[in-house]
Design a protein around this nucleic acid. Structure first.
Lengths: 258, 258
DNA sequence: CCTTGACCCTCACGCGGCGTCAGGGACTAT
DNA sequence: ATAGTCCCTGACGCCGCGTGAGGGTCAAGG
């Protein structure tokens, strides 16, 4: 039949011999039997189990958990796999955002297009940006607001492409962190969100070039709601994320105001 | 101006205080200045650098390399970023394959559809499978081949959905490993590919239920070439991968025959 | 002015998932 | 018998921090 030594199994499965030793040590994958010479011998069954292990390992599941997981029966495993599926889907979406960020960075480092041509509001066409600025001016603070926006833009240009880039990436990261809370079922009014909203507000502050006050931050929420582009953008993180986020932002602003 | 303590910077950037200590220790991110009380104080510049660091960290770049990377100037960085971009794109594609694998696994564990309805040839419609089998029978070994295929299928069903699943995932992993070599510029006739092709052949053997002989493995290459579906499938890993892979398979089979 | 509580510091150990020796048997082929 | 390739068992090292312990510092309120 099939009888593999460590090296053979290693080649067939693509892992190292040391890894097989390790899996034996921690009891995750034991040899089918051990020779008198203390050699480890594996059979077809172990090969299949190993493949199952590697499958879960690629998903980022800790080895310990993989062991427990493989000991369960089908019912449970479906539930667990579904969770992993959701996590993986999230990671893929994040990675795609990262890809876009990289492309922007490269474009900027190559000096292709100034910031006006790029997307200050991450992912939206330049023509739209003016529209959003108008909206902010119309709905909040008039000239004071306009001045604030200009200040932000200038600081922005002064800092150079790499700084712009870093800041944009940071904003996306903050967004994703919030999206994870949303996906995890955290309530939009939870005070546990404060650190994450702090972070998001800090990012907005950077865009503006100075501290973003509470009512301003609450105002952003309204802007997000008023423009369908934002809804499209945010709902990529999951259906309903836009509503959840804006609710959270307003609740946070209200808490801070008191 | 802006003067942040460790905790403040941690909140704004989403990392832990310990991480900031660590980055200071290894010289990756030093505070703007240190107070007489030995407190670390960071400024806006450090915030930006930190964001830049986190951006690269998300790409999986080791901290050491991030440090060296940030010390370079724009020209080099574009090249490096491009490499990272390619790697990330590859990872995304792998993850999407994994997603599909998970979906199949879940479907199978739920008992939705027997294996006949599923894709034995990973990713192709059931109707196609019969076609491929016919092709193999017509071009290689006639009845002997047909019997071999049936043997494989039976062992397949007997093993149950999870084993099928594990084997499928393993095949995809082997495929990806080869695709990485292709992307890295390895020649299709390199003997260094032997372990990876061993692995792939071992997978094919599993599908067949017994050892896959050399001429059979070479035959698979012809089948891949004869059916455009395979080309479509393999070329997802990069344009020209199908040709490269089939060449490699034949070279390997020839080597083994000698 | 003193207390409280939240912050700050510096060691220093631990962990996961192995890689990588070192030192020594076992098997196979010539 | 000799060489070459495999196998074994320790044991230490690495990265990127988490998680204490043990002790100073600061801002606000009583």
């Amino acid at each position: 039949m099939s009888r593999y030594t460590v090296k053979q199994l290693a080649r067939l499965s693509g892992v190292s011999v040391r890894t097989l030793h390790h899996y034996d040590e921690i009891g995750l994958l034991r040899p089918a039997f051990i020779g008198e010479n203390r050699y480890r011998y594996y059979g077809r069954e172990e090969l299949l189990r190993l493949q199952d292990i590697l499958f879960h390992r690629e998903l980022g599941v800790p080895l310990q958990e993989i062991g427990e997981l493989l000991a369960r029966d089908g019912r449970d495993r479906v539930a667990i796999l579904s969770r992993h599926r959701a996590l993986l889907a999230g990671r893929i979406e994040s990675s795609r955002q990262l890809l876009r960020t990289i492309d922007r960075t490269i474009a900027q480092l190559n000096g292709e297009g100034t910031m006006d041509d790029q997307d200050l509001y991450h992912g939206f066409a330049p023509a739209k940006q003016a529209e959003y600025e108008e909206w902010l001016v119309d709905n909040y603070g008039g000239e004071a607001m306009r001045e604030r926006i200009e200040t932000g833009k200038q600081q922005w240009f002064k800092a150079g492409p790499e700084a712009m880039q870093a800041a944009l990436a940071s904003g996306e990261a903050a967004e994703r962190a919030l999206a994870e809370q949303f996906a995890g079922g955290t309530g939009a009014d939870s005070t546990g969100l404060d650190p994450l909203l702090d972070r998001h507000r800090a990012w907005v502050s950077q865009m503006w070039g100075r501290e973003c006050p509470r009512e301003g931050y609450g105002g952003m929420a309204d802007m997000y709601l008023a423009h369908p582009d934002f809804r499209t953008h945010f709902d990529k993180h999951g259906e309903g994320f836009t509503d959840w986020l804006t609710t959270a932002m307003k609740a946070y602003a209200a808490r801070r105001a008191s």
